[in-house]
Design a protein around this nucleic acid. Structure first.
Length: 572
RNA sequence: UGGGAUGUCGUCUAAUGGUAGGACAGUGGACUCUGGAUCCAUAUGUAGGGGUUCAAAUCCUCUCAUCCCAGCCA
């Protein structure tokens, strides 16, 4: 958290930051600033509290808060809470957590659309008095029939020409709760023949006898998104109201509402393409389905693309912010390669993560020329990328474990690791040579007998001979037993939404997205691992302490693996 | 087939009439006590056809492809 704050304050010269990035939104802002239309900009991040935020929202958060930071403006956090049946404080809290965790601050600019219910109501009466809105008795079915289709114009409601007095009276009685849900609504009087269906007398208030998580039972009529959003923006003095592409068709309605009303300003709505990532889904509907059908373990399952899930997995806010920066902002629909996110993660973790040694799949070795009972505490650097990170001690003894994968009885070409008769370096320790292979009755290798070169302490030989392979290891008498959770993509295919006719999205689920490995042997220093601390398990990948971890049963999540160029060589 | 938008390397994104550039991914190499990191080098792109211009990814025009819209959801 400290680091995040520092990161934000760090940006003292927005010009530097701006020169790196350019996008059409910044172009508009530059124009509006240059023309004198605005002196300062105000943006907003406006989630509906009806679910957990995901990496797509992170893009929007970084965009809106990033713009405010770079232009020395403000970014509000506003909850778009106009549909009480879908919303909950659980989500409000998680959203605030997520935005903070990402490293952004809304300062004292926290708002709720529900804060404006009174103003919104008064503006609605204003609209009625101007003859621009009417109470309609059509039910949902009837309204749909009169709305027309994509190619045919709609037909005006028979209630469209009620008098102002009648409309005012009915609307007030709606508010008083006199009518049942669905029997009446308030509609804007615009144009039933408009080719834009949003303009065909859209509903702006509906009756919902539902408890609201903030206003309780005060209201039984609730304003609709299109009517609420533009007015909320105007009330808050938003200059640039940035939303996703699907609202492009709503912009005429956004502008219409503000044109009719005596609002303080008229923000500019700008639309950009939402984020899609390969091998995952980004729709709240599907993410909710994964949770509710127990295909994952909750919204913060480390496989989920939710911010809560990524945080638990071990992703860093810096990596996500950097990712948001790199993908840019544009209007073309696109699917970003998941590799880019992984790159950003490794890039950040590489300079931060403490190096430790953990053997996931152990193979015992005995150093036959090493004294029984002797223990040496060897120096292991914490991070080769950061000399200030210091070092820690690891125990070396006669009996050790190495990774099963680091030994091959029949070594292929270009094999640098251990094989019968071959020499390999144990990281931070000695050169060893494999002399005997011990097998069980099934013919499986269960133990190796090796010798070490006492002259190679620290990993260097006096005669200067080169050993290409270096492996991680852990002393048999100094192990910490840990559980490791290896995560893979939730879906098997790059675009899980590309589903064959009549099939369920679940056919693309990766059944092996979670692999739990128990009884991994970690160096003892890991017993002091703090919650949230990031490690590189040497040659394996980046890991962090999971929420389930206890001192008795330490649990680590693999955040992301290391790049593996051996597998490429092997495949050739 | 009404309306709104969008098409630039495999992917994402710059270029705002004047050298099509960057990042990721890929490939080749160097280096390395992590087959990690780092460094160097590299191929591949303006959806298509016409037009305007000394000059077009950019302007005009036609075509094609893709996405969004018929909630009292946001």
């Amino acid at each position: 958290m400290e680091e995040d704050k520092k990161d934000n304050i760090d940006v003292l010269n927005p010009q530097d930051e701006k020169s790196e990035v350019s996008n059409f939104i910044r172009f508009f802002i530059d124009q509006d600033l240059a023309s004198g239309k605005h002196k300062n900009i105000v943006t907003r991040f406006p989630p509906e509290p009806n679910g957990y935020l995901h990496i797509g929202h992170a893009k929007s958060i970084c965009l809106n808060f990033g713009l405010a930071r770079d232009y020395k403006g403000k970014c509000h956090l506003r909850f778009d809470d106009t549909n009480p049946t879908a919303e909950d404080v659980e989500y409000v809290d998680s959203i605030m957590d997520d935005v903070r965790w990402l490293g952004f601050s809304w300062e004292d600019n926290l708002f709720y659309a529900s804060d404006y219910y009174d103003q919104l109501y008064n503006y609605a009466e204003f609209l009625i008095k101007e003859g621009k809105a009417f109470v309609c008795d059509l039910n949902q079915d009837e309204m749909r029939k009169l709305r027309g289709t994509l190619t045919e114009p709609g037909i005006e409601s028979p209630y469209r020409n009620r008098t102002v007095e009648e409309n005012l009276d009915l609307f007030r009685r709606m508010k008083e709760g006199e009518f049942e849900e669905g029997t009446k609504s308030l509609r804007a009087k615009i144009d039933m023949k408009s080719p834009n269906i949003n303009m065909r007398d859209p509903v702006i208030y509906r009756i919902k006898k539902a408890h609201h998580h903030r206003t309780g039972d005060k209201w039984c009529i609730y304003p609709m998104y299109d009517y609420t959003h533009c007015i909320s923006d105007a009330i808050e003095g938003i200059t640039h109201s940035i939303c996703t592409l699907e609202f492009e068709d709503h912009r005429p309605l956004y502008d219409w509402c503000l044109d009719q009303l005596p609002v303080p300003c008229h923000p500019r709505q700008i639309e950009f393409a939402r984020l899609n990532l390969t091998y995952t889904v980004m729709s709240k509907r599907l993410l909710r389905a994964l949770v509710e059908e127990n295909l994952v373990n909750g919204w913060d399952d480390p496989r989920m693309p939710t911010i809560a899930g990524m945080r638990r997995r071990g992703y860093t806010p810096e990596a996500i912010r950097n990712f948001a920066d790199k993908i840019g902002v544009a209007k073309a629909n696109s699917i970003v390669d998941f590799n880019l996110l992984q790159f950003c993660l490794r890039d950040d973790l590489n300079i931060k993560a403490k190096r430790v040694m953990v053997v996931l799949d152990p193979l015992e070795i005995e150093i036959e020329n090493y004294p029984d009972g002797q223990v040496e505490f060897l120096d292991a650097e914490n991070n080769p990328e950061d000399i200030t990170a210091g070092s820690h001690k690891i125990a070396f003894t006669k009996h050790l474990f190495i990774e099963k994968d680091d030994f091959k009885e029949d070594a292929p070409k270009k094999w640098f690791r251990l094989a019968p008769g071959a020499e390999m370096r144990l990281k931070h320790a000695y050169y060893i040579t494999c002399n005997h292979v011990i097998k069980n009755e099934q013919g499986e290798v269960i133990k190796l007998i090796c010798t070490y070169d006492p002259e190679s302490k620290g990993g260097w030989s006096k005669d200067g001979r080169k050993v290409k392979g270096t492996a991680h290891w852990v002393s048999k008498d100094h192990v910490l037993n840990i559980e490791v959770r290896m995560y893979d993509q939730l879906f098997k295919v790059p675009n899980p939404m590309d589903i064959p006719e009549g099939m369920d999205y679940k056919i693309n689920l990766n059944q092996d997205s979670l692999r739990v490995i128990k009884n991994c042997y970690a160096e003892e220093s890991l017993k002091d691992a703090q919650s949230g601390e990031k490690f590189q398990f040497l040659r394996q990948g980046y890991f962090t302490v999971d929420y389930d971890s206890t001192p008795e049963n330490p649990v680590f999540n693999r955040i992301v693996g290391l790049k593996d160029s051996w597998s490429k060589i092997e495949n050739k």
